[in-house]
Amino acid sequence: MTTDNTSHPSQPKIVTLTARRLICAAALALASLPAFAQSAETAAAAKPAAAKTEAPRSKADSAATATLAALLPHLAASDTIPLMDRSAMFAGDLSRLISAYDASKGISAATEAALANDSDGKVQSILRRAMTLLGTPYRWGGTSPDAGFDCSGLVGYVFRTALGVELPRVSREMASQANAELINDRSALAAGDLVFFGRKGRVDHVGIYLGEGRFLHAPSTGKDVRTDTLMTGYWGDKFMQARRVAL
């Protein structure tokens, strides 16, 4: 009979790669905020002669600032998702949103017009309310932050609580609203528009357009409310149409 004398030292506790990535992402998100604020101050201090050139940028900055102001307090909210996980997830969304408002890209004419004509702040109210829901879990049939959201439940909740506008319950009915302007051309999309996706001519998904090709939605089971692009990739291929709700 042989005896195995090989020692088995206890495994040291290690930080998993995923955890390290989460920590780094959260740190980057927090670190980016001072730089973002500084860039805004620098732009404000620019020479008056550059005012006309910077006009589209100032509108984009206003939209981004409102988005950030609504989003940051949500990081400290009590939620089922651990704060570190949520911070990392928001870091990605913040990074994409900030880059979306880069001056070199400008903003679409339709979005610029929507922001310029938003004297009563209705478009901004929709965007602010939508962004506070980032990270809410998907749940089929869900219509509230506590219960979770499906795609149409999320859109309906945002419009109802932000402006008191009642929308049809399901995406295909939202897509056929006679009192909402139909938009087929992606280049004509403006912030606050409802964007619809589907296959074989049948709508099966809806989100809220944020500008610069990005939209916010509740994707599917096992995922959370997030932003994605509709210009390329999976959602780009599934894009069908949009509707502009009368506010």
Rank of each mutant, 00 (worst) to 15 (best):
A114H: 14
R244P: 05
I23R: 09
A64D: 08
I14V: 15
L30W: 11
E112I: 00
L33G: 04
R96G: 08
S78T: 14
T65A: 09
R244I: 10
T42Q: 07
L189W: 00
L83C: 01
G233I: 09
T6L: 09
S10L: 11
D204F: 09
A180I: 07
F36Y: 11
S119K: 10
V15N: 08
A178C: 07
P73V: 11
K52W: 12
A49G: 13
F197N: 04
S220F: 06
D224V: 12
A191Y: 05
L30Y: 11
S87R: 02
R243V: 10
R20N: 13
G135Q: 06
H74N: 14
K238W: 11
T232A: 09
L33F: 10
M1D: 07
S99F: 05
Y157P: 13
A103G: 14
L94T: 14
G135F: 02
W140V: 10
Q38P: 05
V195C: 11
T80A: 12
S95Q: 12
D185V: 06
I126P: 00
A69K: 15
S104K: 14
G201W: 06
D118Y: 00
G213K: 00
I107H: 05
S187F: 06
A77H: 12
D4K: 08
G106H: 06
G92N: 14
R129I: 06
I183Y: 00
R21A: 15
A31N: 10
I23P: 03
V165E: 10
L72E: 03
H74Y: 09
F196I: 10
Q38R: 14
G198K: 03
A43M: 11
F239H: 01
D146G: 13
S104C: 12
H8R: 15
D146R: 05
K47S: 11
A77V: 05
E181S: 10
